[in-house]
């Protein structure tokens, strides 16, 4: 009995130890990325290439999802608002939910599963096939050449994707609310413009998505670089990228929201 209890405590200790070690390595890894970024910015083409792969190629899923979410918000929002006789506030509801929360959070979740997982898979496979070791032996720093461009590509793409998501979402809300249901168009836009503040709502949303982009990109490149170099190891790294990214996005969202919208 005592034996099993001790064993359980010991295994908890091991896990905490491992987790702290990984966290420490991740922090050191981020420092290395920043340190070697100068080297990789001197060849900007590498980063532009990654903006294409993680940003441009996520465009379709982001736009389609944004449109759908905006339309659903339009329907549900109208349903609730019209009970209180204030369906003109539909524009406000759609725009605020999108710019403050749904835009940054949902697009970051989509980004993590679309671009983050493929970054992890790419780097993990390069590691498994010794391409990273080969690069290092050829006096090419793999962090400057492979990791940093992917990290910055994600950091640049994410805010742009989130802004597109929100913009398309507002349009979706407009389609359902104004075109389909028949809320007054003037009231829809003017109430929205009266209540959505550029700095407080739009800009804070962009800041949020920037932070999410950095977090997801770091997790993705780190999991790829830290992957066990086997098929199984790479697949479990991809899984971890998606899971940890989702947790990080939601936890960071709570923290950022409580800083940004305190007492207003």
């Amino acid at each position: 009995m005592l034996e099993t209890a001790l064993e359980a405590i010991r295994s908890i200790g091991h896990r905490v130890n491992d987790a702290l070690q990984t966290l420490g390595f991740a922090a050191r890894f981020l420092a290395m990325i920043l340190l070697y970024s100068g080297q990789s910015f001197r060849r900007l083409r590498l980063t532009i290439r990654e903006v294409y792969f993680s940003g441009f190629q996520s465009l379709l899923i982001i736009l389609v999802s944004g449109l759908f979410i905006g339309m659903v918000l339009g329907m549900q929002g109208y349903e609730t608002l019209q009970r209180y006789g204030s369906s003109e506030a539909l524009g406000v509801l759609v725009a605020l939910s999108l710019t403050r929360e749904l835009g940054p959070v949902v697009s970051a979740l989509l980004f993590a599963s679309r671009a983050g997982s493929s970054i992890t898979a790419e780097i993990g496979l390069m590691k498994a096939t010794e391409q990273l070791t080969a690069m290092d032996m050829m006096a090419v720093n793999p962090i400057a050449r492979v990791v940093a461009p992917r990290f910055w590509g994600g950091v640049v793409s994410m805010p742009l994707l989130a802004a597109m998501f929100s913009a398309v979402g507002v349009f979706g809300g407009y389609l359902v609310g104004v075109v389909l249901i028949g809320v007054d168009e003037g009231a829809f836009w003017s109430q929205m413009q009266g209540s959505v503040d550029f700095y407080l709502d739009v800009w804070n949303g962009i800041v949020k998505s920037f932070v999410f982009g950095a977090a997801v990109s770091l997790i993705a490149v780190f999991e790829g670089y830290d992957a066990v170099p086997t098929a199984e190891g790479v697949s479990s790294s991809i899984k971890r990228t998606v899971v940890y990214s989702a947790l990080a996005i939601l936890a960071l969202d709570l923290v950022l929201t409580s800083f940004m919208f305190r007492g207003i």
């Binding site: 496979l125 390069m126 096939t129 010794e130 391409q131 070791t133 080969a134």
Partner: peptide, 8 residues
């Protein structure tokens, strides 16, 4: 390298 390690 053992299996070439070409950049794929």
């Amino acid at each position: 390298f053992q299996f070439g390690a070409l950049f794929t």
